[in-house]
């Protein structure tokens, strides 16, 4: 079954076309890493999939339109867009997607929130203020929040920004553990830490420049087309790494 299907997807902003004529079929489950330079339309693509921006073309999430289908998505936006003026605790943050206006918080919600915080090793911070945490700790809490609804699809926008090696490693291991049960779409500038778990790489520069397995797509020719400059690639018998990124974490 396809988790995500895009047909002739185009998004236009006032400033011009953000992404153009994207056609894609992503099987469930699979791990897709999206690469591209700044302004390539990576975040716009993610938002279009969730129906958060006006688009032309057709989008199917688990066979449904984005409005219906986004219920099975857990989304991690870039952390810089969070408003840390709000004095919420870790518990409040993780529970946000579950609470409703009238019913409030149920016992099973709390149980689930604790469960996902344990996964990211943040359960000891349950009552701690979110804005008092380090960047890496905040990112782990936000990652736990994406898991709290038990989504079939995880959409992660630069999840490792401002994280140290320890946090990055633990998050990658956690993502790896979901590889066979969820579809994971991840936007990242440096693919190297993810080459082992990535099934498919999507090279995006407003249009799809390449889509396929790491060893087929990551090559110097494609990197030059993507970034407009020569980017050396090291090939091993199993996979390949982009020079300039983290070799491994």
């Amino acid at each position: 079954m396809n988790s995500i299907e895009l047909k002739n997807l185009t998004v236009r902003y006032r400033e011009g076309i953000a992404i153009e004529n994207i056609n894609l079929e992503i099987q469930h489950p699979s791990f897709v890493t999206i690469m591209g330079p700044n302004g390539a339309g990576k975040t716009t693509l993610l938002k279009a999939i969730m129906g958060m921006v006006p688009y032309e073309g057709e989008i199917k999430i688990m066979g449904k339109n984005p409005k219906e289908g986004k219920r099975v998505i857990g989304y991690l936006p870039q952390r810089e867009r969070i408003n840390t003026n709000v004095p919420v605790t870790v518990k409040d943050v993780v529970l946000m997607p579950l609470v409703s206006n009238v019913r409030g918080v149920k016992k099973e919600h709390v149980k689930k929130a604790k469960e996902v915080l344990k996964m990211v090793n943040m359960i000891d911070y349950w009552n701690r203020r979110f804005d008092a945490l380090s960047g890496g700790q905040q990112q782990r809490v936000l990652f736990a929040r994406t898991l709290v609804t038990d989504p079939d699809i995880l959409i992660l926008d630069e999840p490792f920004s401002a994280t140290d090696v320890k946090t990055k490693t633990s998050l990658i291991h956690l993502l790896h553990s979901f590889k066979n049960e969820k579809t994971i779409l991840i936007v990242i500038h440096d693919i190297n830490p993810l080459v082992e778990c990535t099934d498919y790489v999507l090279l995006l520069k407003k249009k799809v420049l390449g889509f396929g397995m790491v060893k087929d797509v990551i090559n110097e020719e494609n990197m030059e087309r993507l970034y407009g400059t020569r980017v050396p690639v090291i090939r091993t018998p199993e996979t390949c790494y982009v020079v300039g990124g983290d070799r491994h974490v």
């Binding site: 986004k70 709000v86 919420v88 946000m96 409703s100």
Partner: peptide, 21 residues
């Protein structure tokens, strides 16, 4: 009292709130 939870979600993280419907 009826709506503060959703308002809180929206002012804390509007993108995630919108993604969650």
């Amino acid at each position: 009292i009826i709506f503060y939870r959703k308002m809180l979600y929206v002012i804390f993280d509007p993108e995630s709130a919108e993604a969650n419907g």
